[in-house]
Design a protein around this nucleic acid. Structure first.
Lengths: 174, 174
DNA sequence: CGCAATCATTTTAAGCTTAAAATAATTCCG
DNA sequence: CGGAATTATTTTAAGCTTAAAATGATTGCG
């Protein structure tokens, strides 16, 4: 009978609704967004099910793991690309959980420096290989060549967006 | 002396922190996420400054604009890739604003069908050309060929993620 | 029919996120 | 030195988002 119940119910996400002759830029943007949402949803669910942690907390731990000397609130805000007020709450919750610690900066009393605690390092080390495996699985359908091409094209997107940003700022300044 | 030209403050986002020999999959994912965040931030700021509307509301209006017969809550949830409970609140707020209307489905009393009001249609029509221009500007650094390539590669990513998803679900079912 | 299963939506509680205003510390410069 | 400007962070209010549980309606089927 072959009636393959099969996953695909004719995909009904944001970008699938576009007409084929819509603007290329818009199509690329919506497809990019769809991909990001799909992957993010996957990782979020995995982190919750396997480690009872949220994605923003995991992301914050990941940044600290790469920074042996810790990071300031502002550096975290830049790296995670979220507002500074957001970081305050996130850090508060992770401190309560005992995964990170904050210490006032000795040289500048406005700053504080945030670091992984040993417990936080252990927790992150347990998560990161699993996380990496998930990502590998999600990209399993692409060859290394395709990924390399994608990396290049995405670099251009990033560059393009950032230069559009600075053009706009220049305009504002007159 | 060649001392690093350029304004670029040595970019400090999530993916810029990766070592060059890190896993390719992870690098692609983080760069994809960076691009999505940058674009989304831009559009969000534009919508707020120019039209005093939030991105989720705009996205919801955009879906309804493409659906002359309106959409159910569940269809909105699928298309916007957010939880169903989320849609409830979003729709409530847009109804209060008078931009959309909801009517109970005559055939199924569980469902309701949501549509743009004339005011909502007018509001959306005013926003969409501006929105499209922003997107065009953000992608101005890519040729049409590059965008076409990107579209293809992102289709592969989407496909890959979705098939990883169904493999996983199959495992769960035994 | 009748009732179990499924389905569409809402509710709830917790957490995330933002923009804007407030607070506090440092730097700039006359 | 001293005040203005800048910088780092927190606070606030509103809104977004999720997962899970609850509610209510429809469907499937014995």
């Amino acid at each position: 009978m072959e009636h393959e119940p099969v996953a695909a119910p004719a995909s009904t996400d944001r970008e699938s609704a576009l007409d084929h002759d819509d603007k290329l830029e818009l199509r690329v943007w919506l497809r990019l967004l769809t991909c990001a949402n799909l992957i993010e949803g996957h990782v979020r669910a995995g982190l919750r099910e396997s480690f009872s942690i949220t994605l923003p907390r995991f992301d914050l731990l990941a940044q600290l793991d790469r920074a042996p000397d810790g990071l300031t609130m502002g550096e975290l805000s830049d790296r995670l690309m979220v507002s500074n007020g957001n970081i305050t709450g996130l850090v508060d919750r992770l401190v309560t959980e005992g995964l990170i610690g904050r210490a006032p900066s000795p040289s500048d009393r406005r700053r504080s420096r945030v670091r992984l605690t040993p417990a936080g390092k252990r927790a992150f080390d347990a998560m990161t290989p699993v996380h990496e495996r998930w990502i590998d699985e999600l990209f399993a359908g692409l060859t290394r060549t395709e990924m390399a091409e994608l990396l290049v094209l995405l670099a251009k997107v990033k560059q393009s967006v950032q230069s559009a940003e600075s053009i706009e700022k220049a305009k504002e300044r007159g």
